[in-house]
Design a protein around this nucleic acid. Structure first.
Length: 141
RNA sequence: CCAGUCGGCCGGGCGGCCGCUCCGGGGAUCUCCCCGGGGAGGAAAGUCCGGGCUCCACGGAAAGACGGUGCCGGUCAACGACCGGCGAGGGCGACCUCAGGGAAAGUGCCACAGAAAACAGACCGCUCCGCCGCGGACGUCGGAACUCUCCGAUGUCCGGUCGAAAGACGGAGAUCGCCUUCGGGCGGUUCCGGCGGAGCAAGGGUGAAAAGGUGGGGUAAGAGCCCACCGCGGACCCGGCGACGGGGACGGCAUGGCAAACCCCACCGGGAGCAAGACCGAAUAGGGGCGGCGCGGGCUCGCAAGAGUUCCAGUCUUUUCCGGACCAGUCGCCCGGGUUGGUUGCGCGAGGCGUCCGGCAACGGGCGUCCCAGACGAAUGGCCGCCACGUGGGCGAAAGCCCGCCAUACAGAACCCGGCUUACAGGCCGACUGGCUCA
């Protein structure tokens, strides 16, 4: 799965579905292009801990996602994983299981939204944000 | 063996599976695969100093402001760092800690306590002289003063001492002289108390600190007033590159502490930072530079065009002085800026390792050898097994076995170096000091 890197992209995903677990929060959103390659970004704020702790949280999430990518990814969907300090208390197997569950819930919610809105979203919606910078401190990946 | 001081180092190892990033090679040819190699730290941290690098400013001189540093010598690209030494303080010692000079250039501060905190001073105290000596309250008379008040005599009341009482009273002991009715009386000296005057700073007490210390002489009591020793200042001499050390004629006790209060002295310092800076591309809007021609403001005259003028203001350059630039317009030529994205800056370096030489050392030099992270929503990882070591528990005679510890700290490069500071589980090595025991 490819990475999200632009601030605007993160903000677009933040307006979508949320699914919280003990170790992380998953944000998901639908992209205009239904065939687009799925993407995912990571956010770990300074509240989580110092640089070493933040790196470890992000790297474990990243690895779990890599291992589950095939079962989780669907075209036309963007995601953001927000890491929490509690994720370090979970075993890696639990983390992977939680990830699977969260994605399943997210895809369900997104499907419901698409149905109720009827028409697919247009491109103006995604680029409507003015993109002015409100600096949120944080490390993302 | 115990206790301790200083310095240096490590801060998990091996392996498996699956990944990330960079470089080289190869294959594919539109971004994928294969092979090989590199891939976090001693502090990468805090961002406290010093540099490199980049851009901006930049003509000179002087002055000022601000900031920093401060024993001496050395090292270094440089430093506020490091090394060696000097001085002071602490420790039995190895060793550790601190620090520029000036308080006699000036201003200022010294809480509390204490009499007094700096041109010394005088609470208690010590000494000499003079006067007075039942106490208190309220009156009267006289005198001094003429505002308070002070002195003398005396009355009433209350209290005290002596006495059996009436009454008396200048407190108490000693001593001397005279008188004596032998009870004592009078006078003098001394002691005690009060008041006043003068001298003193030894002692007490306070304090972080009290104006040299101890002893003796001296004195009315005292005092560097005098003397001895110690301390202090110190011309000069000797040693040292120097900080400084040793000696010291002589002086004769002065010059309390704080400069991390202001300050004075010496030296150093332009500003901003890789989000520096450079390059590439599209749309849009019209900005900048250079050169030519040419030009200002004030005042006076004039209706105006314009003319005259021993006038030179204003802005910028930290300030001042000198100097410079700018302060109409027009023509020609040339080139961009902002936003977003990409590329670059971006790692051969005050470089690492080994060895030899010089130096007490910091460090310097020679030779050999190696190429050793380069991300950018930010790679350097995830999971597992075995071992090592630590620790807790269980079993066992022991060897050992089993189980647990989020077991194994602090912490993640962001342009790069040299330092400093701070954080750090556990462990290793070396040198040295003081003890104890054995030979």
């Amino acid at each position: 799965m490819r990475r999200l890197k632009k601030r605007a992209e993160f903000q677009a995903v933040a307006r979508g579905a949320r699914s919280a677990r003990r170790g992380f929060v998953l944000q998901s959103a639908v992209v205009d292009d239904a065939e687009a390659e799925p993407r995912c970004g990571f956010t770990v704020t300074k509240k989580v801990g110092n640089a070493v702790v933040r790196n470890r949280v992000r790297r474990r999430l990243k690895e779990a996602l890599r291992l589950e990518a095939e079962r989780v990814a669907r075209p036309g969907r963007d995601h953001v994983l927000i890491g929490r300090r509690e994720s370090l208390d979970l075993s890696f197997a639990t983390l992977r299981a939680d990830l699977l569950g969260a994605f399943a819930q997210a895809h369900k919610t997104l499907a419901k939204i698409e149905k109720s809105e009827g028409a697919p979203r247009r491109s103006q919606d995604r680029h409507a944000n003015e993109g002015h910078r409100d600096k949120t401190p944080g490390t993302a990946g």
